[in-house]
Amino acid sequence: MVISPFLGGMIDIIGKRGYLALLTAVLTIPVFGLLAFSDVYPLVATVWLGLTYSFAAASMWPSIPLVVTQATVGTAMGLTTSIQMIGIGISNLVVGQILGSDKAG
């Protein structure tokens, strides 16, 4: 939360948004292994996840106006947000189904 406002400016200076987005996706994977299979304090994994998500958001969302015409930026942002929310909704349904399943029966 503290560094997020500065990430956009830093990424504008560095560039390489695509590589950074890929790197953040790869760096997110070990977080779930840490949470599931280790005795590492959960705050470590939570901070790691927050940092990777902040870098991912700061590198991907500003890329949309760079790849679509100025006349379609609003539509592209709306469509992207809608697709993201559909994914979050489906993920919640899947997790609910997994957690609600009866393992004994």
Rank of each mutant, 00 (worst) to 15 (best):
M1Q: 04
M1S: 13
M1F: 12
V2Q: 02
I3A: 12
S4H: 08
P5W: 05
F6S: 09
F6L: 15
F6T: 09
F6Y: 15
L7G: 07
L7N: 08
L7D: 02
G9P: 10
G9T: 15
M10W: 14
M10A: 12
I11C: 02
I11N: 06
I11R: 06
I13L: 04
I14M: 12
I14N: 00
I14S: 04
I14A: 08
G15R: 03
K16N: 14
K16V: 13
R17E: 10
Y19V: 14
Y19N: 11
L20H: 07
A21C: 04
A21E: 02
L22R: 05
L22T: 15
L23P: 01
T24H: 00
T24L: 03
T24Y: 01
A25C: 11
A25E: 12
V26L: 14
V26Q: 03
L27I: 00
L27E: 05
T28H: 13
T28F: 11
T28A: 09
I29E: 06
P30R: 03
P30N: 03
V31C: 08
V31F: 01
F32E: 02
G33F: 12
L35E: 06
A36T: 11
F37E: 04
S38I: 13
D39N: 14
P42V: 07
P42Y: 07
L43V: 14
L43Q: 07
A45V: 09
A45Y: 11
T46W: 13
V47I: 15
W48I: 06
W48F: 13
W48R: 00
L49D: 08
G50I: 04
G50M: 11
L51W: 14
L51Q: 06
L51P: 07
T52E: 04
Y53T: 07
Y53A: 12
S54G: 15
S54Y: 03
S54D: 14
A56Q: 07
A58M: 02
A58T: 02
M60K: 04
M60Q: 05
M60S: 09
W61K: 05
P62I: 09
S63W: 14
I64G: 02
I64L: 13
V67G: 00
V67Y: 11
V68S: 00
T69A: 08
Q70Y: 09
V73A: 03
G74Q: 04
T75M: 08
A76L: 02
A76H: 03
A76P: 10
M77E: 11
G78P: 13
T80V: 05
T81S: 14
I83T: 10
M85T: 05
M85H: 12
M85F: 15
I86T: 12
I86D: 04
G87A: 09
I88L: 14
I88N: 00
I88C: 06
S91Q: 06
S91T: 15
S91M: 09
N92L: 15
N92F: 15
L93W: 08
V94A: 04
V95C: 07
G96Y: 02
G96V: 02
G96R: 00
Q97V: 01
L99I: 01
G100W: 10
G100C: 06
S101R: 02
D102F: 14
A104K: 13
A104R: 11
G105D: 14
